[in-house]
């Protein structure tokens, strides 16, 4: 039964036999139709071209956030820690006004993109690495290894992550590296499940059997035959993990548990909320960071979405 349930956001592939044949059938196989051509080089998944409009939009949005984060020192009009006159409404001197301490909100906003992206990508890298490794081993070796690894995954899956992080963060008063580490250690489960079910399918294909009969070691087969063929699942999964981690980071800093030495969007909203910005109607204080969170998450999700949709585009032919 563990095999029947799958945590995936948009397109969850299951490990039942039904799914396995569908995958094979769903692949446009222009060549001779023998199993060898199922190998990585003939999959047209990552060719340029059919990237849909939403995907393109996501990419552009994401690139602008990336630019904002990497060159924040150059783009930001002033140092976000310098104090001007507090509670200034948006105007010529300060495009988005100032907060209660007189910090320029636009500059805060631009610097805030750093934490969001670093935590998002750091956590997602770690979780994708862990998830892929566990999924590959579990799916390839099956049997006892699978039972144990998937048991652990199931248990981790059931623990509500955000409350756990809140508890840990309350004791630890963490830096943003720590937040990324915590998120990464808790978020690998869904990736592991999807990778496992894909691995279960791939390992039954004849080119893997071929590699095995040629005497290649298991590790060699896993990393040079199986892994390239599930890469198209890993990438969207990775992007979704980035999005989840970004939302989680924003939530944690909204509770005031983030890294106080860094500007972050969640914390800006928290200050606006707790220090009267909301009650007094200073919309420029909390609206921009909130929109930034939504847009950055959206940009990442749109990219992941586009990748998965493209996989779905290759419909059944024969």
């Amino acid at each position: 039964m563990a095999g029947l349930q799958e945590l995936g956001f948009f397109n969850s592939a299951r490990s039942s036999g039904q799914q396995a044949t569908k995958r094979e059938a769903g692949t446009v196989n222009p060549g001779t139709g023998d199993a060898a051509s199922m190998n990585r080089h003939e999959r047209g998944h990552f060719g340029p071209g059919s990237f849909s409009f939403p995907g393109f939009l996501g990419l552009m949005l994401f690139l602008s956030f990336l630019l904002m984060a990497s060159f924040s020192f150059a783009i930001a009009p002033c140092d976000p820690w310098v104090r001007f006159q507090p509670f200034l409404p948006p105007g010529w001197g300060h495009f988005l006004g100032t907060n209660d301490l007189g910090n320029d909100i636009l500059s805060e906003l631009i610097y805030g993109s750093k934490v969001s992206l670093i935590v998002g990508f750091g956590a997602a890298l770690l979780s994708t690495f862990l998830g892929t490794l566990i999924g590959l081993l579990s799916g390839y070796y099956k049997g006892l290894v699978d039972e144990i690894l998937m048991g652990i995954t199931d248990i981790f899956l059931m623990i509500p992550q955000i409350p756990l992080i809140i508890v840990l963060a309350a004791f630890l008063k963490p830096s943003f590296w720590m937040v990324a580490l915590l998120l990464g250690c808790l978020w690998w489960t869904s990736t592991a499940r999807v990778i496992r079910s894909k691995t279960l399918q791939i390992r039954e294909m004849s080119f893997i059997e071929g590699s095995r009969s040629m005497g290649f070691s298991d590790l060699h087969i896993i990393f040079s035959d199986v892994l390239p063929n599930i890469f198209y699942v890993i990438l969207p999964k990775f992007l979704l993990a980035v999005a989840s981690a970004m939302i989680a980071e924003a939530s944690i800093s909204f509770l005031g548990l983030g890294d106080a030495s860094m500007k972050s969007w969640g914390m800006m909203i928290n200050f606006a909320f707790t220090r009267g910005g909301f009650i007094n109607g200073y919309w420029w204080w909390y609206l921009p960071p909130g929109l930034c969170i939504s847009l950055s998450v959206l940009s990442v999700i749109l990219m992941g979405f586009a990748l998965e949709e493209r996989d779905l585009e290759t419909e059944r032919i024969e």
Partner: peptide, 22 residues
């Protein structure tokens, strides 16, 4: 729904509170 999916619930609440109550 994708937009809502991408918005942290507390920000969504803030927006709703601002718009409908405030």
């Amino acid at each position: 729904f994708l937009m809502i999916y991408c918005t942290p619930p507390y920000f969504l609440s803030l927006l709703a509170l601002y718009l409908f109550s405030f």
